[in-house]
Computed example of a mutant assay.
Amino acid sequence: MRFSGVVSFVLASLCLAGCSSTSGMDALQVPSNETTSSVVRPSAPVAAAGATAETETTVETTSMAGDARMRPPEPVADDNAPPFSLAEEETVAFPAPNLPDSVEPPVQPAALMAPPKRLSRAAPAMLAGPVTRYGFRDAKPINFGRASPRHLAVHGVDVSRWQGNVNWEKLRAQGANFAYIKATDGGDHLDPLFRTNWRNADAAGLKRGAYHFFYWCRTAGEQADWFIRNVPRVEGALPPVIDVEWNGESSCKRRPSRDTVLEKMQVFMDKLERYYGQRPIIYTSPDFYRDNLRGAFPDYPFWLRAVARHPSKVYPGRKWVFWQYSGSGLSHGVRGRIDLNVFHGDERAWRAWAGGQTTVADAD
């Protein structure tokens, strides 16, 4: 009897210990997957606020999901790039139909499908000020022949904190009719000069818009929320821009598959379109376009970097609304170099597009 009681007691103790240990291991192995919401693409250019939801699933490697303080600092796109460019130097070209430099591509209406704005339409006189003619210089001028961007009427710039304190009145007088201003990147970085540039560009009479540098180690939903949190929804602003490119200097070394890239971009752009009532513009560079964007997003406006050849040779068949033709511009009102851009159309097309009207052009 006594021996049996001792054995029973020992066996019971071992069972209890085993159960406790198994429970502890299970608790340490609970997976943590992060999801963000998306929407099904509408057939019309602009979706209403309510839409059917699908999910974008990403595997994040942060030690504490949702707490930005526990993440490694996200890179500032500008911090590791030359202070005069959104993207690295152009390194990739594509086969294209021959376009002799001696032949000037026809000027056509803007290659953008601009959706109706949710905000009330401004009076025509408020849509855009008088167009200031080209007056920039270039530290590394390129001879584009008769395909030169100088033959297009409406030029502008893009800026970030690297340009320092900009004298927007002088920049406007040099020929800057519009400005895209760096606002955010990732999910927790705000350009320290965004608010100043946003206010002063408008005061100087430039049409202004904001851009976001997309970070491939953060969910698209978080990044869209961060942009919306920091960029005002105001009357007359240009459509928001998603800047997508490979950044070799970034601490994020991910290069997702094409399918993942397109899904994340769609989630981000859907959120911005619902909030701002404008279809976002896609800014990209040749290598990223080659890897991910050929044939994708045919109903979205593109802003193309092509600093050595005309976009029709670098991105054959792609419609575009803005062309970044130089990363080495020089101008009164700004220290150092500045990116130069041009709108795809004449003054009349610019006023129509800037006012939110829908115009479509064939690619050159």
Rank of each mutant, 00 (worst) to 15 (best):
P73Q: 05
S102W: 00
S102P: 03
R121A: 03
A68S: 11
S21Y: 13
Q29W: 03
A110P: 03
P97W: 01
R121E: 00
A77N: 04
L28A: 10
E60Q: 15
M113C: 09
A48E: 04
V10Q: 12
S13P: 00
D138K: 07
A96S: 12
V40Q: 11
S32D: 04
L127C: 10
T52V: 07
A87L: 14
A123L: 10
N80D: 01
A47K: 08
G18V: 05
T62Q: 12
S85V: 01
A47Y: 05
E89L: 14
A93D: 02
E74V: 09
V30D: 03
A139L: 05
V92K: 15
P72N: 04
D26F: 10
D78F: 04
A125S: 12
S23K: 12
K117S: 11
A44I: 00
A81Q: 06
R69W: 00
S20A: 13
S102K: 07
A44E: 06
T58V: 14
V76R: 04
A65E: 06
P97M: 09
A123F: 02
P116D: 00
S23M: 10
M126W: 04
E89V: 13
M70S: 14
S120L: 08
S20M: 06
L16S: 10
G50P: 01
P130Q: 13
D67W: 13
V30A: 07
P116L: 02
T62Y: 14
P45K: 14
M113Q: 11
K140P: 00
E90D: 12
P106R: 13
T91V: 07
A122G: 08
L99W: 04
F136S: 10
E60N: 14
S23H: 09
R121M: 01
F84D: 06
R69K: 11
A128K: 06
M126H: 08
T52W: 11
Q29F: 02
A139M: 04
S43Y: 07
T35G: 10
L127H: 06
F9C: 14
M70H: 11
P106T: 06
V107Y: 02
A128N: 03
R41M: 01
P100V: 01
L127K: 09
E90G: 10
V30S: 06
V39F: 15
V10P: 05
A68R: 11
A17T: 08
P105E: 01
V76W: 03
S37R: 11
P106N: 06
V39D: 06
A122P: 03
A12Q: 10
S8W: 10
N98F: 05
P42K: 15
S21H: 12
G135M: 01
S13N: 04
D78P: 02
K140W: 00
V46Y: 06
V30G: 03
N98M: 12
L127N: 05
A65C: 04
A128H: 05
T132S: 09
P97A: 13
D138E: 08
T55V: 10
P75K: 13
E60G: 09
K117Q: 04
S32C: 06
N33W: 10
C15Q: 12
A87G: 04
F94E: 08
N98T: 15
E90H: 07
